[in-house]
């Protein structure tokens, strides 16, 4: 498939910019890791402080752009599904090559890592002693690796899509009997999600920020599972249609975007707050509250579709 399709081309440019910024920060991060000493007043340290300031600003924008870029990615996959035989939505496009599955996994991982980095950066620049600069720059080599992986997968994926070959549609991909893990998730999605929500709320109410961060990882995973296996059939009003991508289409009022924004907003800020607490020993209270509000919003969104279906039809699917 051609890289000149505007949607893919835009993303290639974003990757090029991100890679360029990451190369600069990788270079600076190596110097920070080995030479940073805030109490030093030498010319070298001052120069390094100026460079970290520059790099922080560059990376702040690069990572901040990465978050809406994820929506562009989903949206463009959705659009491309029209060109592939058999694909009904983005799921078919992602499943068209062996790389698609790993691409979306790396995309999600990087999305969360970007959020964590942006949080640490935010708290670092709020204090005049730059206390978390070393931590922030220690994260850069890891981010460099995961973003390179994502970029490579992106290129391999779109290079190896063959529009002539028919692909599976989401009905097949998310069918319940394809693997043990999937069967487990599909059967227990609702109880897993309930457990994750209870754990998250308990950590929130008991003011345990690190536990809260960890619970949010579970909540993110269970949230996706419940959306696919528990909630999406009610959005489609079809018991056999289980797909996390079709809900992003206009036919369903773009409902999926609200789900993903609430889930990502809640869990990313929750996880970032947990990491920030580990680093600084102080919990960012406002961030945790915002996170919990988003998580509750996600729960309500998830409950809304089945509940309204039950109220109008008097039966569950």
């Amino acid at each position: 498939m051609s890289f000149l399709i505007p949607d893919i081309f835009v993303q290639m440019i974003l990757y090029a910019v991100l890679t360029f910024f990451l190369c600069i920060s990788l270079f600076v991060s190596s110097r920070v890791i080995f030479h940073w000493d805030f109490s030093n007043t030498s010319e070298k340290q001052y120069l390094l402080e100026k460079q970290t300031y520059l790099v922080s600003v560059l990376m702040k924008y690069a990572f901040a752009i990465n978050i809406p870029a994820f929506l562009i990615f989903i949206y463009s996959n959705d659009k491309l599904s029209a060109y592939l035989t058999g694909a009904m939505c983005a799921a078919g496009v992602l499943n068209a090559t062996v790389y698609g599955k790993y691409l979306i996994i790396f995309k999600i991982i990087n999305l969360y890592l970007s959020a964590v980095w942006l949080t640490v950066n935010h708290f670092d620049t709020r204090l005049e002693t730059m206390p978390y600069t070393t931590v922030k720059f220690r994260m850069i080599p890891m981010l460099f690796a995961t973003f390179c992986m994502e970029g490579t997968l992106f290129i391999m994926h779109f290079a190896s899509i063959d529009p002539a070959v028919p692909v599976s549609c989401c009905n097949v991909i998310f069918a319940e009997d394809t693997s043990v893990l999937r069967m487990f998730f599909s059967e227990h999605a609702v109880s897993l999600f309930a457990a994750a929500f209870i754990l998250t709320s308990a950590a929130f109410l008991l003011k345990r920020p690190v536990l809260y961060g960890a619970a949010n990882i579970l909540y993110a995973a269970a949230g996706i599972a419940v959306l696919i296996y528990g909630v999406s059939p009610y959005i489609y009003e079809l018991p056999t249609h289980k797909c996390p991508f079709c809900i992003l289409q206009s036919g369903y009022g773009y409902a999926g975007y609200w789900f993903y924004i609430a889930l990502f907003g809640g869990t990313a800020s929750g996880i970032s707050a947990g990491v920030q607490t580990c680093i600084s020993g102080k919990a960012p209270k406002r961030m945790i509250t915002v996170s919990m509000v988003c998580n509750c919003a996600y729960l309500l969104l998830c409950a809304w579709y089945p509940a309204s279906y039950y109220l109008t039809n008097g039966t569950w699917l």
Binding site: F38, T41, Y46, E49, T125, E128, M130
Partner: peptide, 22 residues
């Protein structure tokens, strides 16, 4: 402005390293 090297303390604050907002 910032020094190229060395330490400056004004009103009990290390100003040589202050980021611009501060």
């Amino acid at each position: 402005t910032r020094p190229t090297s060395g330490n400056i303390e004004v009103n009990s604050k290390q100003t040589a390293k202050l980021p611009e907002e501060f």
